[in-house]
Design a protein around this nucleic acid. Structure first.
Lengths: 190, 190
DNA sequence: GCGCGAAGTTGCAGTCCCTGCAAACTTTTA
DNA sequence: TAAAAGTTTGCAGGGACTGCAACTTCGCGC
């Protein structure tokens, strides 16, 4: 994975062959494919295998807690994990940004987790499993997290990822009003 | 495109080769690739080449109109176009649902348009082009539209797509409160 | 140390996606 | 009717990916 990321960052993903990656990693190309189904998978990584744990945490949160804070709380440990693997993720996001074909793949990985989250949200709210709202809530919050990560990567990890996610959730909770952005910055302005 | 959709629907995308598609369409495989960069492109289609027009309409809407209604209005003609090509899109969405690998591609097509919309939103609100909010608003609304389309396809196009999009935007505007869903249905309940 | 089975690694053959190039073919224009 | 412009096609080839069978590696009881 590191070999793939490094080479893709240096030369661009399509100018790197699986043969080169495997050579850099000291394995045969065949072995590469024993671990990654596709070349792209070596860049994206196993992914936020958080599906289960996020859902578990979401279900464990008391029902009194409003939806958005509950989701945010359930997500927090994952976010912190991202920050812990800061360099890995910044490199990964840079490569993804330079190879737009990868972004959709990143999204689709989240889609599975979102599907599961949707079910958790439905049970939380006592809605039928096939209601539109839980799905919508899951995909929208997932998008918010992803946007925050992009933003984080765009600023080279200068800001605090968790804070960015909070901002994004704030906008979401506030009904997409610009005023709800950057609450802490606006505090300083008043 | 129809040949590709038909065959993919019948057998599953990975059990159809480009050679078969081109044969069904009475062209050579080489010609296929003159029109579609990838096999997947034949399924997804040229796509919502609405990028420009949606932005234009958004910029043309008076600034007094709140953001969400403005975006909804700018989107409406496209949505209606989807409904007009109902069968095409329902088939397409079914194939996409059966081949999850395609979903990311659909998303990425929208991503370009979203990027442009973000700029339009920024100018509309008088925010700097690199502000977080416009990007967030563009990706969130894009996600809402996509979720509505999925929902529409899931119900086999039974409901009204535009109405579903309105519901999704309502949830978005209402800060992700379940109460904001299905306003017209709730009317009947009161 | 020695067989032995499980697990991991590799090579090979083959399919399919996709590309550049140049030759044919078709249509338009003069 | 001949040249120009636009399309379609075949061909050669690179690279992703898979199934299979052989080969190494490693731990373990003897």
């Amino acid at each position: 994975m590191s070999a793939a990321l490094r080479l893709a960052d240096e030369r661009g993903l399509d100018h790197v062959t699986v043969e080169e990656i495997s050579e850099a990693a000291d394995v045969s190309p065949r072995t590469f494919f024993n671990y990654f189904a596709t070349k792209d998978d070596a860049i994206i990584g196993e992914q936020i295998a958080d599906g289960p744990s996020v859902c578990d945490r979401l279900l464990a949160t008391p029902v009194e807690v409003p939806l958005i804070p509950a989701i945010l709380a359930a997500l927090t440990p994952e976010i912190e994990q991202f920050q812990a693997d800061r360099d890995l993720w910044l490199l990964r996001m840079r490569v993804i940004k330079d190879n737009p074909a990868l972004l959709p793949i990143l999204v689709s990985r989240g889609a599975v987790a979102e599907q599961e989250s949707a079910v958790a949200i439905a049970t939380r709210l006592g809605l039928p499993a096939d209601d539109f709202f839980p799905l919508l809530a899951a995909t929208l919050t997932g998008t918010a997290v992803r946007a925050a990560m992009m933003r984080w990567a765009d600023t080279d990890g200068a800001g605090d990822l968790l804070e960015l996610v909070r901002e994004a959730f704030g906008v979401l909770a506030g009904g997409l009003q610009p005023e709800h952005l950057n609450p802490e910055k606006q505090k300083g302005n008043r």
